[in-house]
């Protein structure tokens, strides 16, 4: 283990501890609610990173996957009258199935075709949930979705849910981290950079694409299931293209392919509009303009921009040091 990695791991642990004690100091439900929304969004973005960030396939149908996860979990909890945890397992299964199904078109169509396919998919899902009134309650939505509970301990307040979601998001983060820096992750990335070369080196592209899509869909569906039990009420009108777009914006602001960036993207896009609320009528347009300028000037994400700015200053300093003590260092 290099020194650099040790420092990085220490940083992450400090960050984790800091985040874990948040509810002890923040008793305000509004802030906790926003934190919870960030955690759920972060899970989606971590998943989206595999398909859109790493393999470079543009998925604009995340809201559809999210909705399927939410409804799968809510419906089985309601009708089979069982624990939401089973719903979470079902959501994982649903995610796997969606991944296999959506992965297939990504073999045939790519780029802009794929984004249209995924948009169409998400719209079909939304319209089906709206109009299959007998099963889903249609546009009246589903109410009284049970919160998670563990050995009789109910996660029914924002503070309690924060811990639960935090643990799940942290778990999702580490899995994503491990995958991105594994052999799979490198194959995913190489697919984006040069698909032909990857195929030449004997990698089964079809298999890789479907893998990426499946991981993405499982993350999306799990986040959807969490959302259903977090809100306690779901309605198909939530799961629009706007929602899918928001997830991609989070990914973009965090920086494509960067796992830590994903988390920061989710944080920035969820919190920034809330902070801008003091601008009244102009808050949404201001938010959009900031995001657009960010996308144009820092296409590698804000995190990367900050890091590079930091590196530049460090470089300047270390250059000076190096000049002073060239002979000593080597």
């Amino acid at each position: 283990m290099t020194k650099k990695m040790k420092i990085r791991i220490a940083e992450i642990i400090i960050l984790l501890i800091a985040l874990l004690v948040v509810p002890l100091f923040v008793k305000n439900n509004y802030y906790l609610l926003v934190f919870n929304r960030i955690l759920i969004n972060a899970i989606v973005v971590l998943g989206l990173n595999f398909i859109t960030g790493l393999t470079g396939q543009m998925n604009l149908g995340m809201a559809g996957i999210f909705a399927l996860g939410a409804y799968a979990s809510a419906l089985i909890t309601r009708y089979a009258n069982i624990s939401p945890w089973v719903g979470l397992l079902l959501a994982i299964a649903v995610g796997w199935v969606i991944g296999q199904c959506l992965g297939y078109p990504s073999l045939r169509v790519k780029g802009v075709y794929l984004s249209l396919t995924t948009i169409g998919f998400a719209e079909v899902i939304r319209l089906m949930f709206s109009n299959l009134t007998d099963i889903t309650g249609g546009t009246q939505g589903m109410r009284n979705i049970e919160p998670y509970s563990l050995f009789g301990f109910k996660f029914d307040t924002q503070g309690k849910m924060y811990y639960l979601f935090f643990v799940i998001t942290a778990f999702g983060f580490f899995i994503a981290w491990r995958i991105v820096y594994s052999k799979w992750g490198r194959v995913f990335k190489s697919l984006r950079d040069n698909a032909e070369a990857v195929e030449m080196s004997g990698v089964d592209i079809a298999d890789v694409k479907i893998k990426a899509f499946t991981i993405c869909a499982i993350y999306g569906a799990v986040a959807g299931a969490l959302y259903a039990h977090f809100m306690g009420y779901i309605n198909p009108s939530t799961f629009t293209i706007d929602m899918s777009t928001n997830f991609v914006i989070m990914l973009l602001i965090g920086g494509l392919g960067s796992v830590i960036g994903n988390i920061f993207g989710a944080i920035i896009v969820t919190i920034l509009p809330e902070m801008l609320r003091f601008l009244d009528d102009y808050y949404l347009i201001t938010f959009s303009i900031i995001v657009l300028l960010g996308a144009i000037f820092f296409p590698n994400g804000w995190v990367d921009a900050v890091v590079r700015l930091g590196k530049k200053t460090i470089n300047i300093i270390s250059d000076k040091r190096a000049e002073n003590g060239k002979a000593v260092s080597r």
Partner: peptide, 9 residues
């Protein structure tokens, strides 16, 4: 590197 930037723009 990816069309996502312009499309999201």
């Amino acid at each position: 590197q990816s069309m996502i930037f312009a499309v999201m723009g």
